[in-house]
Simulated assay, not measured.
Amino acid sequence: MNSHTYRTVDVPVSGGQLRVGVWDPVTPAAGEPTALAVHGVTASHLAWPFVVEELPGIRILAPDLRGRGASNGVDGPAGMAAHAADLVAVLDAFGEPSVPVFGHSMGAFVAVTLAHLAPERVARLVLIDGGLPLDAPAGVSAEALVQAILGPTAERLSMRFADVAAYLDFWRAHPAFVRDWSAELEAYFAYDLVPDGDAYRPATSLATTTDDTVDMNTGTTLTGALAALPEFPGPVDLVTVPNGLLDERPGLYPPRHLAALLAALPNVRHTELDDLNHYTVVMSGRGARAVAPILTREFSAH
């Protein structure tokens, strides 16, 4: 990347070591600003390079959440509170008392939880296609809830692949990426694989995804965090896109559901970015260019 140099750091957390991707700006902006980026439910820190490239001058800290990527060996339960505690450990390790935080998908829910449990550590919130309650069915089993929200994304976690090329072929045909396949995506997907006997599997386990998805939609931690969101002292931006995980419409926030959420949260500034889906809003060049002005506005305010 031209705007930043890239390295990784392992940060001690409860149950193990959390891998953190660090993008240091080649030319830091005034005050050497830092932001914390939080990825989605089955992603890793390598979901962020497109966005990083659009934020010259800003240091980006992006962990692999516990149970994902190179943090998949961290022992102990996941859930929103555990992830938030891990993020506090990351900020401590880098000597950052308070930073803008932006999260994508489940990462946005983790960001909301962090803002509730450790508000002094969060200067700004940018929630990218996540963070506010989804229009999820009520009264269903954990497995049915995961299927309803994630669908084939969850099914993939039980699949095995002969090699990296087979995994890339699987994703290359995915409807979310047919317009936006890139070398960065190939690196992201290759990083996701771990050995499993004579084959490979995604680093994120289905059990971890199930636990996090259930906690995200029915857990009391997030309920309390969302109830407190109107009192958050800093700016809160919500970015949504019209298309979902399979490039389908509507996306995660159907218009009527989204309107009701925003009516109850007058402090949330909403922007919809057109012609993008849940993945490509951050994992494509055009998505990163569209979301960058919102992120830059927050950094400038910080």
Score class of each variant (00 low, 15 high):
residue 198 D to H: 08
residue 228 A to F: 02
residue 137 P to H: 10
residue 159 M to Q: 15
residue 240 T to K: 02
residue 148 A to Y: 01
residue 191 Y to T: 14
residue 136 A to I: 08
residue 136 A to P: 12
residue 111 A to S: 14
residue 165 A to N: 10
residue 103 G to C: 02
residue 186 E to L: 01
residue 239 V to H: 01
residue 96 E to L: 13
residue 212 D to K: 10
residue 190 A to C: 00
residue 133 P to G: 09
residue 236 V to M: 02
residue 155 E to G: 05
residue 200 Y to G: 08
residue 196 D to W: 05
residue 136 A to M: 09
residue 117 L to Q: 09
residue 186 E to I: 00
residue 98 S to Q: 13
residue 147 Q to T: 13
residue 192 D to T: 15
residue 177 F to I: 09
residue 172 R to W: 00
residue 124 R to V: 12
residue 149 I to K: 12
residue 116 H to T: 15
residue 113 T to K: 02
residue 96 E to A: 13
residue 176 A to I: 03
residue 127 L to V: 03
residue 111 A to V: 10
residue 212 D to Q: 06
residue 169 D to T: 05
residue 98 S to A: 14
residue 99 V to F: 05
residue 226 L to S: 14
residue 209 T to E: 13
residue 173 A to R: 11
residue 168 L to Q: 15
residue 95 G to V: 07
residue 173 A to I: 10
residue 145 L to F: 02
residue 230 P to Q: 08
residue 157 L to H: 04
residue 234 G to W: 02
residue 120 E to G: 12
residue 189 F to V: 02
residue 217 N to L: 12
residue 228 A to S: 14
residue 133 P to Y: 04
residue 151 G to S: 08
residue 126 V to A: 13
residue 191 Y to K: 06
residue 195 P to V: 06
residue 112 V to H: 08
residue 234 G to A: 09
residue 220 T to N: 09
residue 185 L to V: 03
residue 210 T to Q: 14
residue 205 S to I: 06
residue 147 Q to H: 15
residue 125 L to Q: 07
residue 144 A to M: 09
residue 220 T to V: 14
residue 103 G to D: 09
residue 194 V to F: 00
residue 164 V to F: 02
residue 107 G to H: 05
residue 150 L to H: 15
residue 104 H to L: 13
residue 229 L to I: 07
residue 216 M to Y: 03
residue 190 A to G: 04
residue 187 A to K: 11
residue 97 P to A: 07
residue 134 L to I: 01
residue 151 G to Y: 07
residue 206 L to G: 07
residue 226 L to R: 11
residue 175 P to M: 10
residue 95 G to T: 06
residue 143 E to C: 04
residue 108 A to N: 08
residue 122 V to A: 11
residue 199 A to Y: 00
residue 108 A to H: 05
residue 207 A to K: 10
residue 141 S to G: 11
residue 206 L to T: 04
residue 164 V to A: 13
residue 143 E to W: 09
residue 111 A to E: 11
residue 113 T to N: 02
residue 140 V to H: 03
residue 115 A to S: 12
residue 208 T to A: 13
residue 104 H to A: 06
residue 137 P to A: 10
residue 127 L to A: 08
residue 228 A to G: 03
residue 130 G to A: 03
residue 161 F to W: 02
residue 151 G to E: 08
residue 195 P to C: 08
residue 160 R to D: 05
residue 197 G to R: 12
residue 123 A to Y: 06
residue 102 F to S: 06
residue 208 T to F: 06
residue 139 G to A: 04
residue 212 D to W: 05
residue 123 A to R: 14
residue 103 G to Q: 06
residue 99 V to R: 13
residue 109 F to T: 09
residue 98 S to I: 09
residue 138 A to Q: 14
residue 186 E to H: 01
residue 235 P to R: 15
residue 173 A to L: 08
residue 122 V to E: 12
residue 221 T to D: 12
residue 118 A to G: 03
residue 227 A to N: 06
residue 144 A to F: 01
residue 163 D to K: 00
residue 224 G to E: 11
residue 100 P to C: 04
residue 220 T to C: 02
residue 115 A to C: 04
residue 187 A to E: 13
residue 93 A to V: 09
